[in-house]
Amino acid sequence: MQDMISKEEIKKLADLARIEVTDEEVENLKSEMGDILDYVKLIQQFHSDESFPKGKVEEGSDIEVGQLHNIMREDENPTESGTYNKELIAEFPKKEGDYLKVKKIL
């Protein structure tokens, strides 16, 4: 269980997720995530083709419901430009006029 995930891996994941974590938290996460991953790995013993217990439920029959499918719509009737500007701009943490202000990237 201890070997499920290393401290280095956790630091890398936190980096990827853009979350600053302390060394102490990395230590805690290592054991907590180890426990969780150890629990959820029971999913890996799952073989979808074999384990579906068709005969085990009485009077059962095979009907497909809830199939996933894509829902499409025409790209039309756009909102008139500026409709929501006021409220959205009001929520900017930093702004200059109506512009969102961010740190220089390059």
Binding site: I43, F46, S48, S51, F52, P53, K54, V57, E58, E59, G60, S61, D62, I63, E64, V65, G66
Partner: peptide
């Protein structure tokens, strides 16, 4: 994949 199996299991159960 397992989610699909559980869905099917429920479908069968709700037949009974």
């Amino acid at each position: 994949a397992a989610r699909e199996v559980i869905k099917k299991e429920f479908t069968v159960a709700f037949d009974a």
